[in-house]
Each structure stands twice: as C-alpha cells, then as structure tokens.
Design a protein around this nucleic acid. Structure first.
Length: 609
DNA sequence: GCCGTTTTCGGCCCGACTGTTTTCAGTCG
C-alpha cells in the first residue's frame, strides 16, 4: 500500500473523530501524523519490511503506529470500522465545504439527517438550514454558493493560473496612496504547485488602512466580498480564486511576512523553538515574556486598554499578557531570534529545514541563472507549433548554451509522432539549421515512447543516430503497479536511454499519477546512469518535490526541462526551478547546469556512433 | 494522541473574522 493511501485512511479517521467531538489535541496528533506520512520519501510498507520501528518517526506513537501496521497488514483500521458504525463516512466530505467544519456538519446530520452533498443542497434550497440553531439566513446562502464551487474545481488552482488571475489585483493595488509595501505570501510564495487561495500582505500608513481595504474590495473582476475587517479582508474573483488581504504594521513587516508565508508546519516548529527559549512568535513580532515569574499579574487577561503603570517603554500588551518586542522588522530578525539563518520560503515545509539551518547545511539551491540549456521540447514536426529555428533562437535569447529538439516518436499518433524515416528527414533539417545558427549548440533528440512491454518505439540503429534519447510513457496508464514498474525499468535498462521524462504521468487537477513503484524506478535509473526529468510544464511538474528530494538522496542526475510546445513556453523553466528548489535540488545534481562540453561527455557514456 | 534540558502528567501556536449571539462558538489560515 502506498503512503498516500495510508494518509487517506488516517485522514478519514481524523475527520470522523472530529465530527464525533474527540479531543482536539488528539485530532491534531492525527493531522500531524498525516502530514508526516505525506511528506515521507520512503514507503511505510518498505520501512516495515525492513524491520524499522514506525514509532521512531516524530509524531508517531504506539497508537498511530498500531493503526498503520494494522492497515498495511489487513487493509483496514478496526477503530475506523468501529466509528463508521456510528457515524456515516460521507460526512467527512461535507467538512470540505467552505464554512462548514466538524461541529456544523455534526449538527446538520443530527438535527436534519444530512449526510450527502445533494441532501445538503436540497435542505438549503428549501430553507431548512436557516432555522437551525447556530445557523441563519447568511449561513444558508453561503452553503448554496459553496456547493457548486466545491463540485467544480475542488478548490485548487495551478500556481501559474493563480498568477494570471492575480495580476490585475496587484495592478489595482499598486501605487494606491497609503500602501507602503505589498507582497504575496502563503503557499504561493513557497512555490507550491497548486494553491487554494492567495495571501496578499500590505503595510499601510496609520489612517489609510480603511481606505486600502475599501479599495481592495473594488478590484476589477471581483465576484463577491466575503470578509471586510480592519486588518483582514477576503474577496473571491470571478475565476473562483479567493484572495485574502492582510493590512499589517510596517514596523513588524518581517514577522508578518514570515507568519503568513508559512507553512503551518514550519510555523509550529518555529514557535516551539521560540517557546523553548522564553520567546513568543506571532505575526506581530518576536516577544520575550516580561512578566515576573510566578507573578499573578500575568494571569490578568482582560486588561485590554489598561497596561499596568510599571511596564517598560517597549512593552507590548498582547491578548494573553505582556511581552517585550525583540524583533520582527525583517524575516532575518525572526530567524535570528531563534538562532537560525534566513531560510528560503521554498524550504519552509517543516521537512527538516530548521534542523538543516541549525547545522548550517541548508542546500545551495539551483537558480535560473545556473541553467545552461533546455533538453526537452517539441516543434511542428510533431505536436509543437514552432519551427526548429524558432525554438533554437528562442533558447539563445534566453542565454542558453544548448538545446535539444525532442519530438514524439510514432506511437503517439495523436501528436503526429515521427517514424524512423521522418526522424531522419528531421535530422536533415537540424543539420541545415545548425549551419546557419551561431551562439548555441543544437542537439537532435527524440521523446521515444515506452511501449506496453517496456521496449522502445524506435529501432536501435535509429536511436544510435540521435544525440540524446528521452523515454516516456504515453499509453496504457492503467497497467497494474507491478506491470507498469517492470515496463519502465525495462526501458531504463536499454543502453541508449539518457533521460526518463515526466516519470509519473500525472496532470495536475486532471489525471492522477499512474500506479508505479517510483522508488524502484529511481533506483533503476541510478543503477543504469539514466537521468530523470523534472518536467517544468505547469500542468505536470513531474517529478514532485518529494520525489526530487528522494532523487537527490539517491544521487541521481536530474534534467529540468520545459517540454515546450511553443517558443514562449520555454519560460516555464521558472516554475521548474521553483519546484526543484522545493525538492532541495542543488546545481550539481542538475544535468542542464553543465557546460556543453560536460554534457557531451555525459551523453557519450553511451557508445554512440 | 504525542511528547519530555521546565513535565511520564499536563501541556499542546496564535489570531482574525463572521454570524448569531448578547458574550461567544465555529471556522480558517
């Protein structure tokens, strides 16, 4: 069983426990464990087979370990089976509706017997929800709006889509009087491949906050305003993208930026670290508890407007006591307060970045400037829209040293894949273009299909004539896990193969990765000295960050490539770099950071003519 | 349910906003 399935089971269990009204800290323990499982680079079942103790994992104790072992062994968790006898498992789905949490879902179920999305919609339409205690007309309207939204896109946007929708919002706010600074935070800043909403931060001069908020709600393309407070507002664009605005004091901008960049997991770890040294971190700064130890004064919580006369000049009267502001003007100050160097947002996922920072072993992340070429792209010869020359000059314009033209092979008929004859014809054009081309090296390659049985779509003598050979799965996505794994590993063993491209075949929000033992695939690639691709197309971003992290651990070579089907799509490299950084990838791991000479000698490890 | 250079028991990150209340619960990030 895959980790993702383990996580799903635990998630259902956590959801139902929450609806049942279980101890919130118990729920948090489950959520922590789920995040951990999703972030693991190794399969739990492999760890169990290797006799490793799951309780060694942070956040997994005796109980959770027991549930996981039972699940791996029997495919079931008896606690979950027990709970679903009392609570319908469909209720977990309802908590995903915006505005509905476990408490409200439990109420809807107990009072109105609602367990399905359809029933919820019907009840709202006939007005039965508004009469329920704790609900009202507005809650009912909100539910009616949220259901179709939930049904359509499940609330996730590609980061690149979000960037497009966001642009007019930023333009609208840019230069508005009173705005001192503006930045996008949240998962967007961390470079996550899909985002649920966008967190926009603004610092504004004293009195102008109200006007800034008002201006924000009049963004072009706004569908509705969901919240409009003094410091926090939320609009939903017609595209469905929710945008949150926070107005924050300039003096503690760094603390706010850090807080709203997250991730949640990272913030929790940072706060725990702060607490250990008597500090408290919030979006308003880093504070040292200034109340005398054991003093009853610290228990005085309701002194909202009345700071005690003895407090020092910089004292901050917070919601739960008095503290002295220690820093927060910049993110660097926040990290420095807990003895850490600044950590790049792409790493802030609570996956060991804090330990790495403490031990001065943060990765030297690969940057766009490190990239010397693009090794995967298409032209009009198959399903691209540009000429070979156009692609080459577009690459040269981007400052690259080299590129590879890699059209499809014949099995991909819908993409007008090339037969051996057409491929040889293309080699002729490549030679012609090369003659007139200066300032960039042009490689002739092919994205060769891996057939159902793991053999390649082109004969060896044709492969030998190419400068570079990419292999990919484009068919038979439904093979079982073993068959798919065997198919791909067999292809990797072929002596002419250089790069395995888009290794899991996923399309974000559209197609799940096909069933494959990626660990085995990565190991096979390492064994055969084949590189794996990070496909930078915003729809694919395949491999994902965790796979990349694993590839790095295994010492694999990674190619970051755009798979561009038009010259302007070569800019997708930017998103690929972000993804690579999220996988802790350093320049030395990346094939296409190498100078052309080194790339050539790497390609020549194959005995080509 | 997890965890331990404050603790094997008693903590567990912190704050804002809405809607439904009339002082606050629930939800969200």
């Amino acid at each position: 069983m895959e980790n993702i399935e383990v996580a799903r089971h635990l998630e259902e269990l956590a959801d139902l426990l929450e609806i049942q009204g279980a101890n919130p800290f118990r729920i948090r323990a489950y959520r922590n464990a789920i995040r951990l499982v999703r972030g693991l680079t190794r399969r739990l079942s492999d760890m169990v087979s290797a006799q490793e103790e799951l309780t060694d994992l942070p956040g997994i104790g005796a109980d959770l370990s027991g549930h996981i072992l039972e699940l791996l062994e029997t495919g079931k968790i008896s606690l979950l089976e027990e709970i679903v006898r009392d609570i319908p498992r469909e209720l977990a789905v309802l908590t995903r509706i915006e505005g509905l949490g476990p408490k409200k879902v439990a109420k809807l179920w107990k009072e109105l017997g609602i367990i399905s999305l359809d029933a919820l919609q019907e009840a709202a339409e006939v007005g039965r929800i508004a009469d329920l205690e704790g609900f009202g007309a507005k809650s009912q309207e909100k539910i009616l709006r949220a259901i179709p939204e939930f049904r359509s896109h499940q609330g996730r946007f590609l980061r690149s889509e979000a960037a497009n929708y966001l642009r007019p919002v930023l333009d609208h706010l840019e230069g508005f009087p009173g705005i001192i600074r503006m930045e996008v935070a949240g998962s967007y800043r961390r470079g996550v491949e899909t985002v649920g909403d966008v967190d926009l931060l603004v610092s504004a001069a004293g009195e102008s906050a109200r006007e800034v908020m008002e201006h924000f709600t009049r963004v072009p393309g706004v569908d509705r305003v969901e919240a409009r407070g003094e410091t926090k507002g939320r609009i939903v664009l017609r595209s469905g993208l929710p945008v949150d605005l926070r107005i924050l004091p300039e003096a503690t901008w760094g603390a706010a930026l850090h807080h709203f960049t997250g991730s949640k997991e990272h913030n929790v770890q940072m706060r725990a670290l702060a607490r250990a040294s008597g500090l408290r971190i919030s979006e308003y700064g880093v504070f040292r508890d200034s109340s005398p130890q054991g003093s009853s004064e610290s228990e005085d919580h309701d002194g909202d407007g009345g700071p005690d006369g003895a407090s020092a000049r910089d004292d901050f009267v917070g919601r739960d006591g008095v503290g002295v502001l220690e820093g927060g003007a910049t993110e660097e100050e926040v990290f420095a307060a807990v003895g850490l160097p600044w950590i790049p947002p792409v790493l802030r996922e609570g996956r060991g970045e804090i330990e790495a920072a403490r031990e001065a072993r943060l990765p030297n992340l690969v940057k766009l400037q490190d990239i010397r070429g693009d090794l995967h792209m298409h032209t009009m010869w198959s399903d691209g829209s540009g000429e070979i020359l156009e692609m080459a000059t577009a690459c040269r314009d981007r400052g690259y040293e080299y590129l590879a033209i890699t059209d499809h092979s014949r099995a991909v008929t819908v993409a007008r894949g090339l037969t051996p004859e057409r491929l040889r014809e293309q080699a002729g054009e490549i030679a012609t273009v090369r003659e007139g081309l200066e300032g960039i090296h042009l490689l002739h390659g092919c994205e060769v299909d891996i057939l159902k049985n793991g053999s390649l779509d082109l004969p060896d003598d044709v492969l030998e004539e190419l400068d570079i050979v990419l292999v990919a799965v484009h068919s038979h996505f439904n093979l079982d896990r073993k068959a798919q794994t065997d198919r791909v590993t067999r292809a990797l063993a072929h002596p002419m193969v250089d790069i395995l491209v888009h290794p899991t075949g996923r399309l974000l929000n559209r197609r799940e990765p096909f069933a494959i033992d990626l660990e085995a695939v990565l190991e096979a690639a390492a064994g055969h000295d084949v590189a794996v691709e990070l496909n930078a197309s915003p729809r694919r971003l395949d491999l994902n960050d965790r796979h990349l992290f694993r590839a790095r651990e295994l010492g694999l070579t990674v190619s970051i490539a755009t798979d561009a089907h038009a010259p302007d799509r070569l800019d997708h490299m930017v998103g690929g770099i972000l993804q690579a950084q999220r996988g802790w990838i350093e320049p030395g791991t990346v094939l296409n950071t190498r100078p052309f000479g080194e790339l050539k000698s790497w390609l020549r490890r194959r005995d080509r003519s």
